[in-house]
Design a protein around this nucleic acid. Sequence first.
DNA 1: TCTGGGGTCCTAGGACCC
DNA 2: TCTGGGGTCCTAGGACCC
Length: 426
Amino acid sequence: MSFTQYTKKIALVDCNSFYVSCERLFNPKIRKKPVVVLSNNDGCIISRSTEAKALGIKMGEPYFKEKDIIVKNNVQVFSSNYSLYGDMSRRVMRTLKRFNSGIEVYSIDEAFLDLSNFSDDEIEEVGKEIRTTVLQWTGIPTSIGIAKTKTLSKVANHIAKKKQSGVVSLIGIQNIDPILEKVEINDVWGVGRQLTKFYHKNGIYNAKQLKNKSNTWVKKSSNVLSSRTAMELRGISCIDLETTSSKRKSCVVSRSFGKRVESFQELKEAVVGYALNASEKIRSESLATKTITIFIRTSPFQNRFGYYSNSKTIDLPISTNNSIEIVKAVICGLKVIFKNGYRYQKAGVMLSHLSDSTNSKNLFSSEKDEKINNLMKSIDDTNYRYGRSTLSLASAGVHKKYNLKREYSSKIDTADFHSLPTIKTI
DNA sequence: TCTGGGGTCCTAGGACCC
DNA sequence: TCTGGGGTCCTAGGACCC
């Protein structure tokens, strides 16, 4: 006699080489070819097709270091196009939501799904159906791992990546030790470079060894996060699915420059621009900031001209999301930390201690605040309709020689009518 | 020259993730 | 010549209090 089992089931859906897959959607010619996508400023390689991986091109490597291999093998290169990737991501997530409301969108190309309401017997088929549907509706190939905990579903996903079917379930397997034994410790979710070093020193080289270590040892010699990871490998769920999206706690806008920047004026224009972007972002999420940090630095890789990095944090008496106030603080901070004679490579603005702005009326609110809020709102509306920075502040400048390098952009944007791919008929 | 014990709160920096 | 950007959480240690 057998009866249907309904154990806890978490699926991790992960888009394969997501940015590359997005570029391939509208460019069939590069479907079977090696392709890479570069980070901002065409700096590093951040997405690789399987063909590119096979050539030995490494993740996160500077583009110029791999250029020889790239040219020799005619690898297709793209600058990143976040507008396109963001839009495709939303389509994938919308498709996933149809299968279950219990979904945690974990990153631009990953989501955890609670599939506990499906029986043990049918779960692998459900995974395959999800994969097929996402591929059909969005054109994006995915890998799906299913297991009792988030950490184990990551393991399953890791294995699924190398499988033809793209779906791996660990549900119903009595002894998963032989599987975990083949997973290197640094491939376990939550184990980074430092922990890998530490585990190696203690004779732990794979997931099985960590799983079978005593919990007290892990907790005492490392920390709670590590012990949670170990528990999850044992099939005991410690990291919950976060299905309700909570408001963020900080907001950063930072960029590397396309060219080194030396003058205060240019640096100021750049950080004012970042401050405006950040302000707009938090306004769009009905948040206000109480702490503003501005940072600048020269390149950490070339210290021929000396390395300099500094930041200034400014605490406001009252939370705000008013661009003018935020820009004022940022310029103030920049004046404190700016030093002449350096070739700056990067700058950024961080807004933290964010709180809900909808109930932020306080003792000092006035009619003037009301007017400023209305001004901000009309600036945001105009920029939304006519494109970012249609309306800006004079201090943000107009020349922007330091702007990003983006030499290989596909310029396709499915979220912008004017940048949709066109079909030519002869 | 000697100089307690214990609690809370905050922050900077580190480690991790994608 | 050229090395991304944006998050979260934890912890140790300092400041402060009685």
